[in-house]
Simulated assay, not measured.
Amino acid sequence: MISKMPLCAQNSTMVATAQNISDSTHIKTLFHADSTSTQKTSKAIDSEVIYSSADSIIFDVTQKKVISYGDAHVEYENIDLQSYYISLHISNSEIFAKGMYDSLQQKVGFPKYTDDSDFFDADSMQYNFKTRRGLAYGVITQQDEGYLHGQKTKIHNDKEIHIEKGKYTTCDAENPHFHVHITRGKVIPNDKIIFGPAWLIIDEIPIPLVIPFGFFPNKKGRSNGILLPTVGEEAAKGFYFRDMGIYLGFSEYADLRWTADYYTLGSWRTNIRTNYVKRYTFNGSFDVSYASLVY
């Protein structure tokens, strides 16, 4: 039997236990919720699940499923999920979330997932509370100073994620103006992003230079890794890619930054810079550049 709970304008809450879910008559007597209401349930799930909605909540007693519409919100231990639509299958601990498009084809209520300090936006996702594994589509997440997009993303119980058809960029636009296209990748939390065959795409134009494999640093503080370029245009030199290169942190006393600039009208520049320091004794830097300018 399916029971629907319209939300009214009075402050109240409803608590649905596993026994309540199996007794539809009892559930109906507990319907006193509004947009600030909160419901709790636990069955086949280790901890309490807290869920709410600004529109309506449907209890499907036969399938043991709870469906929330409109600013739906689910909390489970350290996991927080917000979306326009969320369905929670109580018997197998699985949850599914998706957004919608309004009349102007603008995104509304697309899933926002948070697990401790990890977070991402997605077009849709499914997740199992007990196994801590999930699958998400259209993911966008910030990793250190970059943004990672994934067409298909697998979430593992150790918080590692695997990505198919991804993008890595420093551009914060939903459709970035430039990015490294990643066929497959693996994100190791607070360590690195490892990727397979990849290539640079600028304004949807692929650059014919394939990187067989590589990695980006993905942890706080100084770390070795690839430096993504800044993309732009100068009237005299054409389009440019500036400051692409690598960074090497040898120790707490010295590092090296090797970068290059390239302009489509033929100019280029390369630069090597190293910093060194010994506390209370000395510090300094060494900088060498070489350039070829074409006007």
Rank of each mutant, 00 (worst) to 15 (best):
I211N: 14
P229L: 02
P206A: 06
N224Y: 04
I246D: 09
V210M: 11
G245L: 02
L209N: 08
L200A: 04
L228T: 01
A235W: 08
E204T: 00
G221C: 14
R242C: 08
M244F: 13
S223C: 11
I211T: 15
I207N: 04
I205E: 11
I201F: 10
G214H: 09
P217M: 05
F241K: 11
I226V: 15
I226S: 02
I205V: 07
F241A: 12
D203E: 00
Y240W: 09
K219H: 04
N218D: 15
L209G: 07
V210R: 10
E234W: 12
P208W: 05
V231S: 07
M244G: 15
I207K: 04
R242Q: 12
F216T: 06
P208H: 05
F213A: 14
S223Y: 04
L227H: 00
I201E: 09
I211M: 15
R222S: 15
P217K: 04
E233Y: 13
A236I: 08
K220W: 14
R222I: 15
P212Q: 06
T230C: 01
I246E: 09
G225N: 02
I211G: 15
K237G: 08
E233P: 07
G245P: 01
A236T: 08
N218F: 09
G232E: 00
A235R: 11
I202A: 01
L228Q: 00
F239N: 14
E234K: 15
F239R: 15
E233R: 13
I201D: 05
P217V: 08
Y240R: 14
P217G: 05
I246K: 03
A235P: 07
G221N: 13
L200I: 10
G245N: 02
P229G: 03
F215A: 04
I207R: 07
E204C: 01
G214R: 06
G245W: 00
I246H: 03
K219E: 07
I201L: 07
P208Y: 06
G225Q: 03
K219Y: 02
G221D: 10
D203T: 01
M244P: 13
L228F: 00
G238T: 12
P206K: 08
N224F: 06
I205C: 10
F239M: 13
P229K: 02
L200V: 09
I226W: 01
Y240E: 06
P229N: 03
F216M: 10
M244K: 13
E204P: 02
Y240F: 12
A236Q: 10
V231P: 03
R242E: 06
L228N: 00
R242Y: 06
M244E: 15
S223G: 09
P217S: 09
I201G: 05
G232V: 12
Y240D: 03
K220F: 13
G214Q: 10
T230V: 11
F213H: 12
N224M: 08
L228D: 00
L209P: 02
N224S: 07
D243H: 01
N224I: 11
E233T: 13
G238I: 10
I202H: 01
V231Q: 07
F215E: 03
F213S: 14
F213R: 13
F239W: 12
